[in-house]
């Protein structure tokens, strides 16, 4: 007479445990970068960090909540302008202003969501683009913030970040590192939570998840506003580093959406590992081909099209499906344990 087997619900796998160790080592190395990296390398790393963070956020929206937005540049721009307004006019310390910029972006994300959620699918995507344009055109009318030509961050604000140029660059670097870790952490812990389970259910099948009691609207709303918050923070950092903002730069579709989408698509939608692979590939391609201007952009477009047609789960998807790999353990697997029958 056999006993019924007991089971356990497990998360981590050998691969994920190994990845955790490697990740911590990498993090320590990166944190120490100001010691071993030159100024140009630090700048490059900052760029990689904020593109990776943007990609994680876009991936969360599109890959998990099914919200394909072509308007996230709205929150990058809003975050940037909020930083300039808060620290330039209200005297808020820049580093605090970065966080508050995220709050501003989140607050504006609420009415935005209420409006754009009336649309579905591809129409939702274009709707978000329209909203981003509205923000861009509106900011261009605000002469206090530089109007159409933009403004530079006031010198005294720049100086208040830290004493000495090197220290300022290091500080901005650590903030950038902190932000990308935050972005990945937000995605990771969200997916591991109950909300995350709801998200995966929504991603797999909306009607099914609704019939099980998942409140799709509220979950999506929550994710959208959260992503707006983090994206606003990222935008604030970007323009703190650039020291100058203008409507076209702040709300650029190419810079903050096209490249981000490319990164996520090539790397692999719907998995945390995807954007990491994607951002590496993106920067390699940029190093190799950016000098070719339009041909480089055409290459990016063509690669994105090819990947979508031939390997829709991206490069990481190809690898992960083949070897059933998951480095960030968000799945739950049921492991059956055989129990010995009573003698």
């Amino acid at each position: 007479m056999a006993d019924s087997p007991t089971f356990s619900v497990q998360r981590s796998t050998p691969a994920s445990r190994a990845a955790l160790v490697m990740g911590l080592v990498l993090l320590a190395l990166l944190a120490a970068a100001p010691l071993w990296a030159g100024r140009a390398e630090l700048r490059l790393l900052i760029e990689i960090f904020y593109y990776l963070a943007l990609a994680q956020m876009w991936n969360l929206l599109a890959g998990y909540a099914g919200l394909v937005s072509v308007g996230q540049q709205a929150y990058v721009g809003l975050g940037g302008y909020a930083l300039f307004a808060l620290s330039g006019f209200l005297g808020v310390p820049p580093l605090l202003a970065i966080v508050l910029a995220g709050v501003v972006a989140a607050i504006l994300a609420v009415p935005t969501a209420l409006v754009v959620f009336r649309l579905r699918g591809a129409y939702f995507a274009i709707g978000t683009w329209v909203v981003a344009e509205v923000y861009r055109l509106t900011m261009a009318q605000v002469s206090a913030l530089g109007g159409g030509s933009g403004m530079s961050l006031p010198v005294d604000v720049v100086r208040s970040i830290a004493e000495g140029r090197d220290m300022r660059e290091f500080l901005v670097y650590w903030v950038a590192l902190g932000i990308v870790v935050l972005a990945i952490a937000v995605v990771y812990f969200l997916l591991r939570s109950r909300q995350g389970l709801a998200l995966t259910a929504i991603r797999d099948s909306e009607p099914a998840s609704e019939s099980l009691g998942v409140n799709n609207y509220r979950t999506k709303f929550l994710v959208y506003v959260t992503v707006g918050f983090v994206t606003g923070i990222i935008g604030a950092l970007i323009f703190l580093q650039k020291l100058r903002i203008s409507p076209d730069a702040a709300f650029s579709v190419n810079d903050w959406t096209a490249f981000v989408i490319f990164i996520v698509v090539i790397g692999g939608i719907g998995r945390i590992e995807g954007p990491i692979i994607g951002v590496v590939l993106f920067f390699i391609l940029r190093e190799l081909f950016a000098d070719y201007g339009t041909w480089y952009l055409m290459l990016l477009g063509a690669v994105a099209v090819l990947i979508m047609l031939r390997a829709p789960r991206g490069l990481w998807g190809l690898v992960a499906d083949r070897f059933d790999l998951e480095l960030f353990p968000v799945r739950r697997s049921v492991r059956l344990k055989e129990t010995r029958p009573d003698a």
Binding site: A62, G66, V68, V70, G121, A122, A125, A258, I261, V265, I269, T294, W295, L297, M298, L300, G301, A302, A304, V305, M308, L309, P312
Partner: peptide, 20 residues
């Protein structure tokens, strides 16, 4: 059934056409 492929492919196409 998936809305992503047409959206992303036509997005890529948009970039290609503009730059061409």
């Amino acid at each position: 059934r998936d809305i992503l492929p047409p959206l992303l492919v036509t997005f890529g196409l948009s970039v290609i056409i503009q730059n061409a």
